[in-house]
Deep mutational scan, measured.
Amino acid sequence: MEQATVKWFNAEKGFGFIERENGDDVFVHFSAIQGDGFKSLDEGQAVTFDVEEGQRGPQAANVQKA
Rank of each mutant, 00 (worst) to 15 (best):
41 L>P: 02
9 F>C: 06
6 V>G: 03
25 D>W: 13
51 V>N: 03
16 G>N: 00
43 E>R: 15
25 D>C: 14
10 N>Y: 05
55 Q>H: 13
49 F>E: 02
33 I>N: 01
15 F>C: 06
66 A>N: 11
4 A>H: 04
37 G>W: 06
9 F>T: 01
27 F>G: 01
37 G>N: 06
25 D>I: 14
27 F>H: 02
56 R>K: 12
38 F>R: 08
7 K>A: 03
17 F>H: 01
16 G>K: 00
11 A>I: 12
3 Q>A: 12
61 A>H: 09
60 A>I: 02
6 V>P: 04
13 K>R: 11
36 D>R: 10
63 V>S: 01
27 F>S: 01
2 E>S: 11
51 V>P: 04
64 Q>G: 07
39 K>R: 12
13 K>L: 14
10 N>A: 05
31 S>C: 09
14 G>H: 02
31 S>E: 05
49 F>R: 03
21 E>N: 11
19 E>K: 15
63 V>D: 02
56 R>S: 09
3 Q>Y: 14
27 F>E: 04
58 P>V: 10
52 E>R: 10
53 E>F: 14
21 E>K: 13
49 F>P: 02
62 N>G: 04
52 E>P: 00
44 G>D: 04
12 E>Y: 12
33 I>R: 00
22 N>H: 11
12 E>L: 13
4 A>W: 04
42 D>F: 15
57 G>F: 04
34 Q>F: 11
30 F>Q: 07
63 V>W: 00
59 Q>R: 12
20 R>Q: 07
34 Q>H: 10
40 S>F: 13
44 G>M: 03
48 T>E: 07
2 E>D: 07
18 I>R: 00
48 T>W: 15
35 G>T: 09
37 G>C: 10
66 A>Q: 12
64 Q>E: 09
14 G>M: 01
53 E>W: 15
55 Q>Y: 14
10 N>E: 06
16 G>W: 01
49 F>I: 06
48 T>I: 13
21 E>M: 12
59 Q>E: 08
55 Q>P: 15
12 E>P: 01
36 D>T: 13
26 V>A: 00
30 F>G: 05
33 I>Q: 00
11 A>R: 13
44 G>R: 06
25 D>N: 12
66 A>V: 15
58 P>N: 06
3 Q>N: 11
8 W>D: 06
42 D>W: 14
4 A>S: 09
18 I>T: 01
40 S>A: 09
14 G>E: 02
65 K>W: 08
57 G>D: 01
63 V>Y: 00
42 D>G: 10
28 V>L: 08
12 E>S: 12
34 Q>S: 11
21 E>Y: 11
21 E>R: 12
30 F>N: 06
35 G>N: 06
64 Q>K: 12
16 G>D: 01
63 V>P: 02
31 S>V: 05
36 D>E: 13
42 D>C: 15
35 G>Y: 07
44 G>C: 09
39 K>V: 07
46 A>C: 15
3 Q>H: 14
1 M>Y: 12
58 P>Q: 09
45 Q>F: 04
29 H>I: 04
31 S>K: 07
19 E>V: 15
12 E>T: 12
23 G>R: 07
34 Q>V: 14
47 V>P: 03
12 E>K: 14
44 G>T: 02
43 E>K: 15
8 W>I: 03
37 G>H: 07
28 V>P: 05
54 G>M: 07
59 Q>N: 04
23 G>Y: 07
65 K>P: 11
63 V>K: 01
61 A>E: 05
8 W>S: 02
4 A>F: 05
36 D>I: 12
28 V>M: 06
35 G>C: 11
37 G>Y: 07
33 I>M: 04
52 E>H: 11
13 K>W: 12
63 V>A: 02
16 G>T: 03
4 A>E: 02
20 R>I: 08
43 E>Q: 15
2 E>K: 10
36 D>M: 11
18 I>E: 00
14 G>W: 02
24 D>T: 14
55 Q>E: 13
65 K>C: 11
28 V>Y: 04
10 N>G: 04
65 K>D: 08
61 A>S: 10
30 F>Y: 13
61 A>V: 14
43 E>M: 14
31 S>M: 07
1 M>I: 12
22 N>T: 10
39 K>M: 07
43 E>F: 12
32 A>D: 09
33 I>C: 06
45 Q>H: 09
60 A>T: 00
47 V>R: 01
11 A>D: 09
17 F>A: 01
49 F>V: 03
28 V>K: 01
36 D>P: 12
35 G>S: 09
56 R>C: 13
21 E>P: 13
53 E>D: 11
20 R>N: 06
58 P>A: 09
7 K>E: 05
17 F>G: 01
15 F>Q: 01
30 F>W: 15
4 A>P: 03
31 S>I: 05
38 F>E: 07
7 K>C: 10
33 I>Y: 01
65 K>G: 08
66 A>Y: 11
56 R>N: 11
56 R>V: 07
29 H>G: 02
8 W>Q: 02
40 S>L: 08
57 G>C: 05
57 G>M: 04
19 E>C: 15
51 V>D: 02
45 Q>P: 01
15 F>D: 01
57 G>K: 04
65 K>R: 11
24 D>I: 13
43 E>V: 15
44 G>N: 06
4 A>M: 04
66 A>I: 15
58 P>S: 08
23 G>F: 06
45 Q>G: 07
56 R>I: 07
2 E>A: 10
59 Q>C: 06
24 D>V: 13
11 A>Y: 11
10 N>M: 02
64 Q>V: 12
55 Q>K: 14
32 A>Q: 09
18 I>M: 04
45 Q>N: 06
43 E>G: 13
47 V>D: 02
13 K>A: 09
18 I>H: 00
33 I>L: 07
15 F>K: 00
24 D>M: 11
28 V>C: 07
33 I>E: 04
54 G>L: 06
49 F>M: 08
12 E>V: 12
15 F>V: 05
53 E>H: 12
62 N>Q: 05
22 N>R: 09
20 R>Y: 05
47 V>L: 04
27 F>T: 02
41 L>V: 04
5 T>P: 02
24 D>F: 10
32 A>M: 05
1 M>T: 13
30 F>L: 06
20 R>G: 06
49 F>S: 03
58 P>H: 07
30 F>C: 10
22 N>Y: 11
31 S>D: 06
53 E>S: 10
21 E>L: 12
19 E>W: 12
48 T>C: 12
42 D>M: 15
4 A>R: 03
29 H>W: 06
18 I>A: 02
63 V>Q: 01
48 T>H: 09
50 D>E: 14
3 Q>K: 14
13 K>V: 09
41 L>E: 01
14 G>R: 00
15 F>M: 05
20 R>M: 09
5 T>V: 13
28 V>S: 00
44 G>I: 01
7 K>V: 05
48 T>D: 05
22 N>F: 11
64 Q>S: 11
16 G>C: 07
36 D>F: 11
50 D>Q: 14
61 A>F: 08
60 A>Y: 00
19 E>L: 14
24 D>K: 14
46 A>I: 15
22 N>E: 09
53 E>Q: 14
12 E>A: 13
18 I>N: 01
45 Q>M: 12
